[in-house]
């Protein structure tokens, strides 16, 4: 059973195509990741799916209702946490909950029960009268999630919910998301953090409004990273990258913090089945340069980030 069915959805602003003819499906109860770099069109897509932005063409069924023709019905079935911070800073925790409960038509006992739940998941019991502005970002984000789902929607859209939050709060937030999904809620979430995407059942990647890949994290890695990925730590990674780029042995070279991830070309592997050989080739190449010291070199299992960078580079190359 599909919660969301997107069919050839596009959004054009003036003559700029923000979302370009994308189609995908999200199953009920799934945690669905929506990835893409800045300006890729994630927020635009989410707003269309929430019924607050009219599509230029195409349509989507959200909870069985068309976003183009029944946006009001769509709204009744969803929760949404926008990318911009969405609580009232000058209201207290309690007042925020009352307000969002009110606009969703909750009253009396139901409101009381849901308020208790929101306070519980956000860890704000006993701090009901604190002004929201004085809460730390992690608390605010959990409170915002609580307010966004106060009416127990079947589908929730979260637009970069964990931006600017410390790792522990991020973890707590994802625990909440997992809980909601376990109870049957469909969660549609965008993020920049590719480690978070690993928590998702399925993900799609978009770039410049175009859908470039879809599948579970495992499938994506298997499908796109057939080649070996080697991690290299050395004294000067930029110089190393420069040397290796000339040699035509890699598909892509990307910088991860202080190290390089080298996605090797397949041919090298077919020449020699011995794994160590690639490491040896690289070591030999780099040892020609006396200044360069290798601290560590090993093969790693590819991350989603590798997949992502590979796909974006490939798309750019194809376009050229």
């Amino acid at each position: 059973m599909n919660s969301i069915e997107v069919k050839n959805l596009s959004k054009v602003f003036g003559n700029f195509i923000s979302v370009n003819n994308i189609s995908f499906e999200v199953k009920e109860g799934e945690v669905f990741g929506f990835l893409g770099s800045n300006g890729a069109g994630k927020s635009t897509t989410i707003k269309m799916l929430c019924g607050i932005l009219e599509p230029t063409s195409g349509d989507a069924l959200v909870g069985g209702y068309s976003i183009a023709t029944q946006p009001d019905e769509v709204k009744k079935n969803i929760g949404y946490m926008s990318q911009k911070f969405s609580l009232y800073n000058d209201l207290t925790v309690n007042e925020n909950i009352n307000f969002f409960g009110g606009v969703y038509g909750l009253e009396n006992k139901l409101l009381k029960d849901r308020k208790k739940w929101v306070l519980e998941i956000s860890g704000l019991e006993g701090r009901e009268d604190t002004l929201t502005s004085s809460l730390s970002v992690g608390f605010k984000q959990r409170l915002a999630l609580g307010c966004a789902v106060i009416h127990e929607p079947k589908i929730i859209f979260l637009d970069e919910p964990t931006g600017g939050v410390d790792p522990i709060s991020r973890r707590k937030f994802w625990d909440l998301i997992t809980d909601l999904s376990d109870k049957g809620t469909t969660v549609f979430v965008t993020t920049h953090y590719l480690d978070e995407a690993e928590f998702c059942g399925r993900i799609i990647l978009i770039d410049a409004g175009i859908l470039i890949a879809a599948g579970s994290p495992k499938e994506l890695k298997k499908e796109y990273i057939k080649n070996k990925v080697i991690q290299l730590d050395c004294s000067d990674i930029y110089k190393a990258a420069e040397i290796l780029e000339k040699e035509n042995i890699t598909d892509s070279i990307s910088i991860f913090g202080n190290s390089l991830h080298l996605t090797m070309k397949e041919q090298i592997r077919s020449l020699n089945e011995l794994e160590d050989d690639e490491i040896k080739i690289i070591t030999d190449l780099l040892s020609n340069d006396n200044d360069l010291k290798i601290y560590h070199i090993s093969e790693i299992s590819p991350s989603l980030e590798d997949v992502f960078l590979y796909l974006v580079e490939k798309k750019t190359a194809d376009e050229e």
């Binding site: 607050i52 709204k75 009744k76 949404y80 926008s82 911009k84 009232y88 800073n89 969002f100």
Partner: peptide, 14 residues
Amino acid sequence: ELGTIEQIRVSPVT
């Protein structure tokens, strides 16, 4: 500016 209007627009409030 704060983005809170989106939160209202997405609710059933007309």
